[in-house]
Design a binder for these strands. Structure first.
Lengths: 149, 149
DNA sequence: AATTTTTATATCGTATGCGATACAAAAATT
DNA sequence: AATTTTTGTATCGCATACGATATAAAAATT
């Protein structure tokens, strides 16, 4: 009796892990010229949707913890994309704002989602099928999210 | 016209990124007692399928590079799960072998895939749907793999 | 055979992720 | 009001990922 269960090819997680890595890599050609990494791009997406948010709100939206987001924001501040000011009502908070440079980046980033879809379409020929995973991934994320505390 | 394209909720990649992270986290309860991490678990899967492989073969199967796998294997050697011997035919190679401890771990790991499927089934109620993503993820991976050189 | 190219590992530096912990401030209790 | 609990950030340490680079050995060329 072979241990099919323990085979790499039977692991959903290995696919997720690999697909996520390779997809992040596919962003490189577009993010490198902007001077940001993929996680930083996610932060920018959050801030472009709504400027001036405390660290915890950003973290919540990305399903990350502050111990990941804080250093990320510190690097982004050093790079000049955001500024971090102490909160006025709640002094514990750090309100993250887009700088002029950070706002300007949005224009340059606009074509990126289409570029990526294009790349995927070209390379897989199955763009539709990829997008169909979204609801399933959302269910998975929703289910696993609850575990974390 | 709102920039829907640049919204976080419209990003497939954010789902992949998050789903992969959370799924890896779901392995913690099972891997911590074994003393290995998720990437190390993947290496063990590869070696349990076939013992004694050069670093490059392991890397190829995991779609990783040696600059990731080498340090990983060094940590696993230090932990006593594998040994790394110089290749005899090709002296450039490092042949990675399971130690007694590494082989013994397989027994303890056997129930893990079922545990995970169980967890996912419990938390999402849609185990079937999750597994249906596998062929799509494989197409995505296959497509993106080619890019990387 | 000598040279060039490719291949297999390894090392270095930087940016995540994340568990554990620390700390101050706000909120809830007593 | 004083105490306890919770919350928002930050720091530390360790394990990945991965681009860039180094090195030796095998393979391909000339």
């Amino acid at each position: 009796m072979t241990d099919n269960q323990l085979k790499l090819e039977n692991q959903l997680c290995f696919r997720l892990y690999t697909a996520a890595r390779l997809t992040m890599g596919a962003y490189h050609p577009y993010l490198d010229p902007l001077g940001i990494t993929y996680p930083q791009y996610l932060v920018m997406l959050v801030l472009w949707e709504q400027d001036k948010q405390p660290v915890c709100d950003i973290a919540k939206k990305l399903l990350l913890d502050t111990n990941t987001v804080t250093p990320l924001l510190q690097r982004m501040e050093k790079a000049g994309f955001v500024s971090r000011a102490k909160g006025k009502e709640d002094t514990r908070q750090r309100i993250v704002s887009l700088t002029k440079k950070g706002k300007a980046l949005q224009e340059k980033a606009k074509p990126i989602p289409d570029c990526l879809l294009n790349d995927v379409a070209l390379k897989t020929g199955e763009e539709e099928e990829m997008l169909k995973m979204i609801p399933t991934l959302d269910k998975l994320i929703e289910g696993l999210k609850r575990t974390k505390k």
